[in-house]
């Protein structure tokens, strides 16, 4: 899994590529929570190139969302891949997130 973080005026953008599973999700968690801390307006998590995500990835996104809400920041999933949407839908958690396509 590869992660990149970019900070602009509007948001901190976290871009993820590859598989999110028990092995890689701890690193993702660190990056997402750090992004929430750094953000002045919000966090965007780009998931277009995520080939696989399991429940540990779901838990990480939920934790990011919660942390953002507590700090009055927005938290948006960007262009989530089919794999990501599939697991969010299976878990009935697809509607708790803001989603945008770019």
């Amino acid at each position: 899994m590869k992660i990149e973080t970019d900070k602009s005026a509007d948001e901190v953008l976290v871009t993820i590529e590859g598989d999110i599973d028990l092995y890689s999700s701890p690193e993702l968690r660190k990056v997402v929570l750090a992004a929430v801390k750094k953000a002045t307006a919000g966090v965007g998590v780009h998931l277009g190139a995520v080939s696989y995500m399991d429940s540990s990835g779901v838990a990480t996104l939920v934790e990011g969302l919660r942390s953002a809400k507590e700090n009055d920041r927005s938290f948006t999933l960007i262009a989530p891949s089919h794999a990501v949407m599939k697991v969010l839908e299976l878990a009935r958690l697809d509607s708790i997130f803001e989603v945008r396509s770019i």
Binding site: V62, L65, R66, K69, L90, A91, R92, L93, I96
Partner: peptide, 10 residues
């Protein structure tokens, strides 16, 4: 059963 929670209920 899988339920549909609100964000704060997860």
């Amino acid at each position: 059963p899988m339920e549909r929670p609100a964000a704060h209920e997860v």
